[in-house]
Amino acid sequence: MKNLLLSLLVLPAWCSVPAANSVASGPELPVHAASQKSAPPARGTSMAYDFARPAATYPMPAELAELSGIALAGPTHITGIEDETGNLYDYNLSTKKVDRVIPFGGSGDYEDVARVGSDWFIMRSDGKLFRYSGGKTEEFETGLSFANETEGLTYDAASKTLLVACKGEPGAGLSGGQRAIYRLQPGTFRAEAQPVYVLDVAAIHASSPTTEGQLEKSGKSGKKGKKKDSSKNFSPSAIAVHPLTQHVFVLSAKQNGIVELDQRGQLVAAQPLPADLFPQAEGLAFTPGGDLYVATEAGKKSGQATIYLFRAQGQ
């Protein structure tokens, strides 16, 4: 997937919310979508991370083989979830063991987790959002659905809102060849009427003659990687906001790729992840200083999920 490039489309003002009964509340926030005509980054533009050389490696226990999301829980712990049971796994980075398992819900296809203060938010693939706080769990309707395949969740400290990345249908009148990232309104946790970022899949394939072949090849890794429709090859699996630059990072498991957008939604860089390290990349989490944890599910060869730490370079 060399020289992967990505363009973003301007959202039309008439876009509607993906679910008819979704009602936005609170102050209206701007849509950060860049013009498709904007100049793409130069070929070979890279991020501030060398994804081939992790600074640290953290093997996951067998119960986290289906690791689907991570969030930083302090300087010594990362909390992870897996996509079958409603548990939070408190992983100790020093001992490389799970210290606690915290049940928050029943069985379900849980895809990502975010921490906001002392609360934990968990996103299920059908658009349901769960908040675990003080030993109690609440469930919220976001207006997104299973058709959207909500796979990525993160907290945006600048706007004090949650962002949700959709793997499936983008909603809002967009085409099936696009991918959407929605902002959830504070308090109600309803998706805003318009996506805050829109990713155009066709632009990825048009950016390089080698892109499509690379995507299809890497799409064979992991449990969900055998679909032939090339419009589905960019499939967001995680999202995170850099704490210093406020840039948005979007992970795509299907082709082991990661993209970086600036605050306006302009593409800064896009690059592949090494297939030997990432059979199915599923989680992102930043440290306060800008170092980056990237998680992957277990592959057919490794049989073990792993979290890698990458140090920021030149920041």
Rank of each mutant, 00 (worst) to 15 (best):
Y132W: 10
L4T: 11
Y132H: 15
G222N: 11
A48Y: 00
G290V: 01
Y49P: 07
Q36E: 06
T95K: 13
M60G: 06
K254P: 00
G176Y: 02
G106L: 12
L88W: 02
S159M: 07
G168C: 05
L163Y: 09
L153I: 10
T76E: 07
D276S: 13
T154Q: 11
Y182D: 04
V23C: 09
N21P: 00
P27H: 10
L93R: 12
G303D: 03
G134T: 09
R190S: 13
G225C: 11
G80I: 04
P288A: 03
G314M: 01
K227H: 07
K136Q: 14
A34W: 02
G177C: 05
R115P: 09
W14R: 13
H32S: 15
T306I: 06
P41V: 11
A165Y: 01
A285K: 03
K227L: 09
S302E: 08
S125P: 05
G69K: 04
F130H: 06
K232C: 04
G117S: 03
F121E: 00
N148K: 14
V116C: 09
D291L: 06
R183H: 07
L144W: 08
L6E: 00
P40Q: 13
G176T: 05
L129D: 01
A71T: 08
A180N: 08
G265I: 05
P209K: 12
D119E: 07
G177K: 01
D262A: 06
G225K: 14
K301C: 01
E212I: 11
I102L: 12
V198L: 06
A172W: 02
G289F: 02
T188Q: 08
D119C: 10
T137P: 14
G314V: 11
